[in-house]
Computed example of a mutant assay.
Amino acid sequence: MENKKYSVLIIDDHPLITDAYKSAFNYYSKQNESIKFSIKIAQNCDTAFELINEFSTKEKQIDIIFLDIKLPPSKDRKILSGEDLGLLINKLFPNTKIIISTTLNDNYRVHSIFKSIDPDGFLIKNDITPKELIESIHSILNDPPYYSKTVVKLLRKQVANDFILDNIDRKILYELSIGTRMKDLPNLLPLSIAGIEKRKRHLKQIFNIKSPDDRELLFIAREKGFI
């Protein structure tokens, strides 16, 4: 059998998790001697962004990416989470297989990630065992997609077809959550005050919020993993 070497990028801010993923790839390689993995690890958005751009600049392909969603924002606040990285990866590397791995298990949030990133694999971390990791790697290489059991259950639940938050919605929520004043938001977003207020009204409709202030909006958005 012809030897095959895959380029892998693991993006997660927990060292124990990244070590577990790396061990799974190494174990799979030992069980399948014709397959090798070149693995790089990023534990924050800034490092991940640098590595992604490095691959792109050198015109090198990334074959597989394990991507956590709940990452701290980049220092310049242009990348708010793993979801923004996923959108960038899809743009620069449309053939890369993305495996989302996250603690988020809210129905709306999971469906939103599917709509925005369309990953080849989706794992809820509470489902993950060493065996599950090996199975996910095998499926992604041979017959994607691969979804862990909680994801399969969530996919069976119906959600509104128009439920998706884009990067501007998430940026509004993030800036409000850190105390940025409304009058300053037009300096950070390509929207007027009126446009931002319209977005906020839409977000409140999505989350079924009646309160006129933003506290409940931010509470629900944080609860569902959008902040």
Rank of each mutant, 00 (worst) to 15 (best):
K70G: 01
K70L: 13
S74A: 11
S74H: 07
K75A: 13
K75I: 07
D76R: 09
R77S: 13
K78C: 11
I79H: 01
L85S: 01
G86T: 01
L87S: 01
L87G: 01
L88H: 01
N90C: 03
L92V: 00
L92Y: 04
F93E: 04
P94K: 06
T96A: 04
T96K: 03
T96S: 12
I98V: 01
I100A: 08
I100D: 07
L104G: 02
N107E: 15
S112W: 08
S112K: 13
F114G: 03
K115N: 10
K115L: 12
S116P: 03
I117C: 04
D118V: 01
P119I: 05
F122Q: 07
L123K: 06
L123I: 10
I124C: 08
I124G: 01
N126S: 15
P130W: 11
L133M: 15
I134V: 10
S136D: 12
S136G: 12
I137T: 02
S139W: 07
S139F: 14
L141H: 02
D143E: 15
T150M: 08
V151P: 04
L154V: 11
L155W: 00
R156L: 09
K157T: 03
N161I: 10
F163C: 12
F163S: 08
R170P: 06
R170M: 10
K171S: 15
L173C: 04
Y174M: 12
E175H: 15
L176V: 00
G179I: 05
T180R: 13
R181P: 01
R181I: 00
M182Q: 11
K183Y: 13
K183P: 08
N187I: 00
L188T: 00
L189H: 03
P190F: 14
L191E: 08
S192P: 07
I193E: 12
I193K: 14
I193Y: 07
I193A: 06
A194R: 13
G195D: 06
I196N: 08
E197V: 06
R199Y: 10
R199F: 09
R199V: 09
R201N: 13
H202V: 14
K204A: 02
K204H: 02
I206C: 09
R215V: 00
